[in-house]
């Protein structure tokens, strides 16, 4: 009984993903009736100027925001778990706040904030730059949480042993702490990357002229009526984020097994 329910739910979870992938190979241009297999829509992706520009924007956005949030988040995770903080609970709340606030509210907040900031400082015009700032902010709590989870698994006596054997602080970090944290940081960065890749709402609110991302491209195509190319594009995006998530989880699982 439980097994039937479980399998039904897996079917429910994967039905949307499967149907988009199936449609991306359907040679029928209109409707959902199966007309035969084709690669045509994937080939069409490479000739679409709009998709090429959106891909560049999406990758630029995802890579830059991931770099910022990974650097800040890792250092924050290390500092938060190694040092005592007088306002620890308040900082903790601040770190976690963006996780809970619905994305439409976050997006609206950034829109208003940058609009006000623009009056005092130039450079906050809608566009890729503010999108990067906003994405990095949304990713920061996730990176911090993932790296801190990893930090808590670090046996402090390893660092002390390295120190007793004559290593200075930098050597301890380079030889013990760093390598231990590395898979956690890697997995955090991958998750940050997928967050940016999957985001539609924040980008939609912050975008300026010529800064369409792939999810925004998909949204406007869906609004006008889906073309088969969009199914192909969506399938590629799904595969990309699934791969990143899978890889991130593999990293997590591997070091859990090693620790046991």
């Amino acid at each position: 009984m439980l097994n039937v329910w479980g399998l039904c739910l897996f079917a429910f979870l994967y039905a949307p993903i499967v149907v988009v992938m199936a449609q991306s190979f359907n040679s029928g241009r209109f409707g959902v009736t199966w007309k035969g297999f084709t690669w045509e829509w994937y080939a069409a992706l490479f000739h679409n100027e709009g998709i090429r520009a959106a891909t560049i924007n999406t990758l630029l956005l995802a890579v830059s925001s991931t770099v910022i949030s990974t650097v800040l988040g890792t250092s924050l995770a290390y500092g938060m778990s190694r040092f005592r903080w007088r306002w620890g609970r308040a900082w903790e709340g601040l770190i976690q706040a963006p996780v809970y606030v619905p994305d439409v509210v976050v997006a609206a907040g950034f829109l208003v904030f940058f609009d006000v900031a623009r009056r005092f400082l130039p450079g906050f015009e809608p566009g890729l730059r503010v999108m990067i700032l906003a994405h990095a902010t949304v990713q920061l709590p996730f990176v911090t949480l993932v790296v801190r989870a990893r930090m808590s698994g670090l046996d402090r006596s390893l660092e002390e042993a390295a120190h007793d054997l004559g290593a200075d602080a930098w050597q301890v970090f380079r030889e013990v702490t760093g390598p231990f944290l590395a898979p956690g940081v890697m997995s955090a960065a991958l998750l940050a990357f997928t967050l940016s890749l999957d985001d539609f709402v924040v980008s939609f609110f912050m975008s300026g002229p010529g800064t369409t991302t792939l999810p925004m491209f998909i949204y406007s195509s869906v609004k006008r009526g889906v073309t088969p190319e969009v199914n192909a594009l969506s399938s590629l995006l799904v595969v990309l984020s699934a791969l990143a998530a899978w890889f991130a989880m593999r990293l997590g699982n591997r070091f859990r097994e090693n620790a046991e």
């Binding site: 988009v20 959902v32 889906v226």
Partner: peptide, 28 residues
């Protein structure tokens, strides 16, 4: 668990418009 996590990390917009296909007049 990974089976649950993968949809969790894939684009919500795509999973949403997929329901348009599933529920279209000729959808499954």
């Amino acid at each position: 668990l990974m089976g649950v996590m993968i949809p969790f990390w894939t684009n919500l917009l795509i999973r949403t418009y997929a329901w348009q296909i599933l529920m279209a007049p000729q959808g499954p």
